[in-house]
Deep mutational scan, measured.
Amino acid sequence: KFNKELSVAGREIVTLPNLNDPQKKAFIFSLWDDPSQSANLLAEAKKLNDAQAPK
């Protein structure tokens, strides 16, 4: 279960257009550290992506 959630969340995070590479890497490392938090980490990444969207 975690492997699928981890890969789905990881793929989504790397495609978020408004995150820079260090931010993406930080989220990916957090996913590896605790795969059970993949849904929460993906939600946080999406929030940050939205907040950094060009206005």
Rank of each mutant, 00 (worst) to 15 (best):
K1S: 12
K1D: 10
F2M: 11
F2W: 14
F2Q: 09
F2E: 10
N3P: 11
N3T: 12
K4M: 11
K4F: 10
K4Q: 12
K4Y: 13
K4A: 13
E5M: 12
E5N: 10
E5T: 10
E5R: 09
E5I: 12
L6Y: 05
L6V: 11
L6K: 03
L6W: 09
S7W: 15
S7D: 09
S7Q: 13
V8Q: 12
V8I: 13
A9T: 11
A9S: 06
A9P: 02
A9K: 05
A9E: 08
G10K: 10
E12K: 09
E12Y: 14
E12H: 08
I13V: 03
V14S: 12
V14A: 11
V14E: 13
V14Q: 12
T15Y: 07
T15W: 11
L16H: 03
L16D: 01
P17D: 04
P17V: 06
P17K: 11
P17I: 06
N18H: 14
N18Q: 03
N18R: 01
N18W: 15
N18A: 05
L19R: 00
L19C: 03
L19F: 00
N20F: 07
N20V: 04
D21S: 07
D21W: 15
D21G: 13
P22C: 15
P22N: 15
P22H: 15
P22A: 15
P22V: 14
P22Y: 15
P22M: 15
Q23M: 04
K24H: 01
K24E: 00
K24F: 04
K25A: 13
K25D: 09
A26G: 08
A26Q: 10
A26N: 06
F27S: 00
F27Q: 00
F27L: 05
I28H: 01
I28L: 13
I28Q: 02
F29V: 06
F29C: 13
F29S: 07
F29R: 11
S30L: 14
S30Y: 08
L31M: 09
L31G: 01
W32D: 05
W32F: 10
W32R: 01
W32A: 06
D33V: 10
D34M: 06
D34F: 05
P35K: 02
P35L: 02
P35R: 00
P35E: 04
P35S: 03
S36T: 10
S36P: 04
S36M: 07
Q37V: 04
Q37I: 05
Q37K: 09
Q37L: 06
Q37R: 07
Q37T: 05
Q37C: 08
Q37Y: 03
S38G: 12
S38W: 15
A39R: 06
A39K: 09
N40S: 11
N40V: 13
N40F: 13
N40C: 13
L41F: 04
L41Q: 02
L42D: 01
L42N: 02
L42Q: 03
L42F: 03
A43T: 08
A43W: 08
A43M: 11
A43N: 08
E44H: 05
E44P: 00
E44F: 09
A45F: 02
A45C: 04
K46H: 10
K46V: 06
K46L: 08
K47G: 04
L48K: 04
L48I: 06
L48R: 04
L48C: 06
L48Y: 03
L48T: 04
N49R: 02
N49I: 01
N49E: 02
D50Y: 06
D50C: 09
D50W: 07
D50E: 13
D50S: 08
A51K: 10
A51T: 06
A51G: 04
A51Y: 09
A51L: 12
A51W: 06
Q52K: 04
Q52I: 04
Q52S: 04
Q52Y: 04
A53C: 06
A53R: 09
A53W: 05
P54T: 08
K55N: 11
K55T: 10
K55S: 11
K55C: 13
